[in-house]
Design a protein around this nucleic acid. Sequence first.
RNA 1: GCUAGCGUAGCUCAAUUGGUAGAGCUCCGGUUUUGUAAACCGGAGGUUAUGGGUUCAAGUCCCAUCGCUAGCUCCA
Length: 647
Amino acid sequence: MSDSPIQITLPDGSQREYPRGVTGREIALSIGKKLAKAALGIQVDGLVQDLSRPIEADASVAIVTREAPEALELLRHSAAHIMADAVKRIYPEARLWKGPAIQDERYGFYYDIDLGEKKLGKEDLPAIEMLMRKIVKADLPFERKVVSRAEALKTAERLEEQFKTRTIHRIPEGEDISFYDHGDFTDLCTGPHIPSTGKLGEGFGVLSIAGAYIDDDASQRMLTRIYGNAFPDKATWEAHKKALEEALKRDHRRLGKDLDLYSSMGEFGGGLILWHPKGGFVRHKMEEFWRNEHLAGGYDLVYSPHIAKADLWATSGHLDFYKESMYAPMEVDGQPYLLKPMNCPFHVMMYKSTRRSYREFPMRWAELGTVYRYEGAGMLHGLLRVRGFTQDDAHLFVRPDQLEEEIKRVLDFVLSILRAFGFEDFHLELSTQPEKSVGGDEIWETATAALKVALDDSGIDYGVDEGGGAFYGPKIDVKIKDCLGRFWQCSTIQADFNLPDRFDMTYTGEDGKKHRPIMIHRALLGSLERFFGILIEHYAGVFPLWLAPKQVAVLSVGERHEAFTEKAQAELTALGIRSEMDLGSDKVGAKVRKHLWQEKIQFVAVVGDKEVEAGKLALRHRVDGDLGLFSPGEMAAEIQKRVEART
RNA sequence: GCUAGCGUAGCUCAAUUGGUAGAGCUCCGGUUUUGUAAACCGGAGGUUAUGGGUUCAAGUCCCAUCGCUAGCUCCA
């Protein structure tokens, strides 16, 4: 039967007969020359394979062309090989470890390479990229070879690739061991790859270098990781490089300094943030909005201290499960006290301050609570990863019969608040029981099921992160997508069946007996620091008018306009508009440049002869341009309109 | 923490092979009173991150410390 033809189903549903062992290339060619030329791989029953692989049985296939989403991984993984080839040509002593395609905003692939004593610098990257282009130009075919384990070990030995030897030993019995060659370069690899190096085209490049451990194990040798990216065509690659530059321009650390929003403590204490007056104002508006929404949403606002006796953290379990993130104890009256890494134990103590009735539920206690957590020095990053931060925390106490309903409600609340900040796209993720956890499996299952129901009911797609939960309960994480398409994790909703047990929390039920409440932990913005950093980048420093420290800059043209300008600004202030005034002797152009473009204030209002005569100001918006003459009252109305629209 | 790179005025950056630390912007003073993305003149501003070392001589070379940056998850 081995020579009987096979049935191939094409994406349009049509079926064709081919000889057994037909290759993807042959199928593509039989459909059209153009398709064959554009083909990079073939999907066989959903699995991407080399074009040269024979197909031995009936299958549904789709030719993977450059434009197909599946092509990216082919291109990137092949680019990694080509990069490794280039590196080995320049540094023959280089030994290869791993070089996968990855999904990252910046990078599409990397290769971890042991360069011995050689220290690679940024300045070495162009040479590697240039040589890669040469290899692409040479259009060397990628060839797959399946070998026995013994042969594989021999090849690795011949190549003096001792890391590959290590890898070969790890390949499970029964799995194919394959090498891919192009030109004189050989690498142990499962593939698939593009047909030849030339197919990579021009849309790729080398981006940066970093260190990386073998197996992510800090006790092992550190290798040089070289990052690059690849795209179907040159234009997309150029666009990607531009986007990287744009992201750099939006970097909150850059803008934070330029706009005088915040600074970090630097050598006086890493990961600690100073909120300057302008950043402080934005925070004030964030908090104001947050408090109002919570009060309207049925929450109560609470406050708790920064330190507590070690006993509290022992009872809560933090000393067992969170110790590595907590700071060393301080001594107060001979007793060890600890800085809080979380607010929950305090809220539990609040709960326990009196007897609770089933009638009180659900209880929703929210706090902007400042916590301190130890992060490794290398983890710190601007506002996004800090050691001291204010969580917008809340703890909800519910009866078991209220759990599902309450989680649904929280999810709705979270999304509505995030939308107010201009985020529209969300990704939800359910994280389940980790290895290191407290409470029994049964309790975990119950809680996880409740979260799942809420997620299903939300109608939004979600993923599952197996084992990604906190030590005390499963959680739902909400990631938001900013205007550059980057995802950020902010909100988290965590069920907790554990703390109520540990603290022996109870309430009196309808039946007069004691019952155990369920606790829900919830952070919405995550931390004010981190969310502020995300906002700065999302808005590129141009805050919407409801958050902006200054909404308009009022500028005088000449000396004789000063009096009216001052009067107009005073009126605006009285109308609740946040303005700054510039009566300096700069030209109008310079003033506009300073306030509109450098300080990123949305409006400027200019006062000259015409305006004084009309009793109005010439209003200009940074995007909408000249809006004409406005009296202070009209201006206030115009700005108010936009404040309400949150633009 | 680890690897690599970096640290010069508030900011952005200069400073031959080791040979007197400079410029623009910001700031301050003065002139100018200007019509929508940079008016002009002058001044101030530094123990070159810190501490050691090599040298006749160190921003530059060596060592240590501190800080900053990229990364240290995603199948060979």
